[in-house]
């Protein structure tokens, strides 16, 4: 039997600086039981139930009765996906919900990219410029997180409307005619993007800051010694080394905003519902749990794929050893 110390030593010698998790002790598997039960009851079981709803094996209403069918999936997925399968007949129209999914993903990608671009200078400033006060400033930056997410979104519905704070300000300084206030930035996709980006920037800046803060400064000195100016050093050294943090940050926004619900609900216009809103509608207002289950499972699968693709960056260990 190997002792813990030996295991630790071996793993260190095999992987150099990289620390691998301690090998499990035989005979202690029962320790994982609470976690297994927790996951089985609160994660796996509900997903199985949702899956059963999605193919009609469960239903929330007496009518139509329970019967196994892929009709709800057929209603959601676009025709051409299904035409490969000869068992499934072609549907006459394309799926409006799938198109909505694509629009939602576009909004999400746009938000994630802009949040990362805007957060990078913030993180850079904290890590390189505000060296002494960086943790104080970090706390200030994260202060909005002490308020509820809902309230932060709701606050924008005071600022953005045609007769809101922003328009009043613009009217006061004479940039906007009081009879024709600007309306494009409320109840619009722009409003959704703005509010989501605002909500996520501090959160996105965090992983980038961690990477930059732990960057080995000697590399930058070396770059400058070798003739690179500051911009070139940033481009060739800082940026590549901070990429794990950037990707992690990107995924941190992307995954939760894919299923975003409350922001489009509060600041979106009539044509700006996102995918999460349709899931809500299917379950809560139009009472179509079977169809809602299809939408939920689809979203879950997409998020799982995103997580799988980015798993190696989704770690607390962002100090650049892997770059």
């Amino acid at each position: 039997m190997t002792t813990a110390a030996e295991t630790e030593r071996r793993s260190v010698s095999q992987t150099g600086r990289r620390r691998s998790p301690r090998a499990p002790q035989p005979g202690r598997a029962w320790l994982s039981l609470p976690v297994v039960i927790y996951l089985a009851v609160l994660l796996v079981l509900p997903i199985v139930l949702i899956a059963a709803y999605s193919v009609g094996l469960l239903t929330n209403t007496p009518y139509p009765p329970v019967h196994y069918s892929w009709d709800n999936w057929r209603e959601f997925l676009p025709d051409k996906w299904l035409s490969i399968d000869t068992y499934l007949p072609l549907r006459p129209t394309s799926s409006v919900y799938f198109d909505r999914f694509k629009i939602s993903i576009m909004i999400t990608l746009l938000v994630s990219v802009s949040a990362v671009i805007l957060a990078y200078p913030l993180a850079y400033f904290l890590a390189f410029v505000a060296r002494r006060h960086r943790y104080t400033l970090l706390l200030v930056m994260l202060a909005p997180f002490f308020t509820s997410y809902l309230l932060r979104v709701y606050a924008w519905s005071v600022i953005l409307p045609a007769h809101g704070t922003l328009n009043s300000l613009l009217e006061r300084i004479g940039l906007v005619d009081p009879n024709h206030p600007l309306t494009f930035f409320y109840h619009s996709k722009f409003a959704i993007g703005l509010v989501l980006a605002y909500s996520w920037i501090p959160f996105v800046a965090l992983p980038i800051f961690v990477v930059l803060d732990n960057l080995d400064r000697r590399l930058l000195e070396a770059a400058q010694d070798l003739g690179a100016n500051r911009f070139l050093a940033f481009l060739k050294v800082t940026l590549p080394l901070s990429l794990p943090g950037v990707i992690a940050a990107f995924v941190f926004v992307l995954i939760p905003t894919t299923g975003e619900y409350i922001t489009p609900y509060l600041v979106g216009g009539p044509d700006d519902s996102m995918f999460g809103n349709f899931i809500y509608d299917a379950f809560a207002t139009s009472n179509r749990w079977n169809f809602g289950a299809v939408l939920s499972l689809w979203l879950m699968m997409v998020v799982l794929v995103l997580i799988a693709l980015s798993a190696r960056y989704l770690t607390a260990d962002l100090r650049g050893e892997r770059a």
Binding site: P270, S273, F278, D281, T285, S286, N287
Partner: peptide, 14 residues
């Protein structure tokens, strides 16, 4: 009713 609600959902999604 289910059809009515479906119509409304589709209007919002269209």
């Amino acid at each position: 009713r289910a059809k009515y609600q479906q119509v409304w959902d589709e209007v919002k999604a269209s």
